Amino acid sequence: MSSGTAPGSGTAPGSGVARGSGTAPGPGVAWGSGTVPSYGPRFPDGPLPRVAILGCGQIAQTAHLPAYAAHDVDVVGVWSRRRETTETVPERFPGVRKVHASVEELLADPEVDIVDIATPAEGRLEHVAAALAAGKHVLAQKPLTLDVEGLRPLLAQARRRGLRVAVNQNGRWAPQWRLATRLIEDGAIGDVVGVTHLHDKPLPPLAGTPFDDVPHMLVTDYLLHWVDITRCWLRGKQVATVRADDARVPGQPAAARNPWSASVEVRCTDGAGALLRIVGDVRTRHPSCPFWVHGTDGTLRGSILGRDHLELERGETTTRYALEGAWFVDGFAGVMGELMCAVVEDREPSNSAADNVASLELTLAARDSAQRGGAVVPLPIQL
């Protein structure tokens, strides 16, 4: 994925990956400060905590491991339910030193500081509990769980033991979304009024996959990255209601059991709101996922997963940022780097499991609304 610069617009160079410093390598044109906020993955200085991957399947081998290799993360070992899944991993990723024979063996390894749990959702909380019992910090795949009450005792256990549990909300570190977040935090568009997302691209294969067996899958799983980043941009506001619906679309094959269109709407008590829309399995030569964040003082416009770009309109000035990196794999480096910084700095990661609860509650409210045919669901929570 690449991003271009519009003719005649202001141009700001992207922020590269600066291990330790967290700052952009060069200044650019941006509102107010004259520099672009850093948005790349950040790792702590000095020796990094050591990692083992529990559930080293396709996503771990195509995203986690390449991201970690790019940032010199020491991956002590890996495990998968099927030995053949991981037998070529050490050859393709020479930094991986061990293929563990069992979950128990991996968790007992004294060299492991962080367990990256990339198993399917079923049984994930049990793996988190076992990792905490073994004294390990945890990075867990999203959705962490749809059982929020079952999560709370694990959060309490982690606090008692001084362990950190983070969630792999890697979309937060997609360059466009990450820089948008930094600009919003810096006040570039004032108070956020509205967030809009459109999924203008084909859906991934769903029919005949395990995702087809997940009720309201687009709402409860696929859109979770979009729900989570929207919550980041509305942070500090009070939710009033959530409404969602999903439906089959013309041309959807009978073998595809889940609906292929979905929308989620969030309304806040101050009138701000958000709308997320998947129209179906879009037919287009120019796939993208455009988004807009409107504020009292300006507007951010961008796109991810195709036609990648971000621009800030404020007053008479429009700044289009020449971004570096891409969601895959920088997002996966970003979540691990933030967890490692939190471990070294003895603080909670910004992508902590406790912080993720609000995203889960939004998702569950959306699921309940979809199950009720789009009924409005009250949800008095703070974002």
Results as ranks from 00 to 15, higher is better:
residue 132 L to H: 06
residue 133 A to R: 15
residue 106 L to W: 12
residue 144 L to N: 02
residue 140 A to P: 00
residue 123 G to I: 09
residue 136 K to P: 01
residue 157 Q to S: 12
residue 145 T to G: 00
residue 120 P to Y: 12
residue 138 V to F: 15
residue 124 R to W: 15
residue 125 L to H: 01
residue 129 A to T: 04
residue 117 I to G: 05
residue 122 E to R: 15
residue 138 V to L: 10
residue 168 N to Y: 12
residue 173 W to A: 14
residue 170 N to L: 12
residue 137 H to P: 02
residue 120 P to E: 10
residue 163 L to P: 02
residue 156 A to G: 06
residue 116 D to S: 14
residue 173 W to H: 11
residue 106 L to K: 03
residue 167 V to R: 04
residue 169 Q to Y: 03
residue 146 L to S: 12
residue 120 P to C: 04
residue 120 P to M: 04
residue 174 A to Q: 10
residue 138 V to P: 05
residue 143 P to S: 04
residue 145 T to H: 00
residue 139 L to W: 10
residue 138 V to H: 13
residue 130 A to Y: 03
residue 128 V to R: 04
residue 152 R to D: 15
residue 113 D to C: 05
residue 126 E to T: 09
residue 135 G to V: 06
residue 170 N to H: 07
residue 142 K to R: 12
residue 120 P to K: 12
residue 116 D to N: 13
residue 168 N to P: 03
residue 162 G to L: 09
residue 136 K to D: 00
residue 171 G to Y: 00
residue 156 A to W: 05
residue 107 L to T: 01
residue 150 G to V: 05
residue 172 R to C: 04
residue 114 I to S: 07
residue 107 L to H: 05
residue 124 R to S: 11
residue 118 A to M: 08
residue 142 K to L: 07
residue 111 E to H: 10
residue 138 V to A: 08
residue 156 A to D: 15
residue 147 D to A: 00
residue 115 V to N: 09
residue 152 R to L: 13
residue 125 L to S: 02
residue 164 R to C: 08
residue 142 K to M: 07
residue 123 G to C: 06
residue 111 E to W: 08
residue 133 A to D: 15
residue 147 D to P: 03
residue 136 K to Y: 15
residue 118 A to L: 08
residue 150 G to N: 07
residue 121 A to C: 01
residue 131 A to P: 01
residue 140 A to W: 10
residue 118 A to H: 01
residue 171 G to N: 06
residue 129 A to D: 11
residue 129 A to M: 04
residue 107 L to R: 01
residue 130 A to L: 05
residue 106 L to G: 07
residue 167 V to S: 05
residue 122 E to A: 14
residue 135 G to Y: 15
residue 127 H to N: 09
residue 151 L to G: 04
residue 134 A to F: 11
residue 115 V to Q: 09
residue 168 N to M: 13
residue 122 E to F: 14
residue 113 D to N: 13
residue 140 A to H: 04
residue 106 L to D: 07
residue 153 P to K: 13
residue 112 V to I: 09
residue 158 A to T: 05
residue 160 R to P: 00
residue 121 A to P: 00
residue 161 R to G: 02
residue 134 A to Y: 11
residue 159 R to E: 14
residue 130 A to M: 03
residue 163 L to T: 08
residue 124 R to D: 14
residue 139 L to M: 13
residue 143 P to W: 14
residue 114 I to T: 11
residue 167 V to P: 01
residue 133 A to V: 05
residue 117 I to K: 04
residue 156 A to R: 11
residue 162 G to T: 11
residue 158 A to S: 04
residue 148 V to L: 05
residue 144 L to I: 03
residue 118 A to V: 11
residue 145 T to S: 03
residue 171 G to H: 03
residue 155 L to E: 14
residue 167 V to F: 08
residue 141 Q to K: 11
residue 108 A to V: 08
residue 142 K to C: 06
residue 135 G to S: 07
residue 142 K to W: 08
residue 112 V to S: 03
residue 146 L to K: 12
residue 167 V to N: 03
residue 142 K to I: 08
residue 147 D to Q: 04
residue 113 D to S: 09
residue 146 L to H: 15
residue 128 V to A: 04
residue 172 R to Q: 02
residue 174 A to K: 05
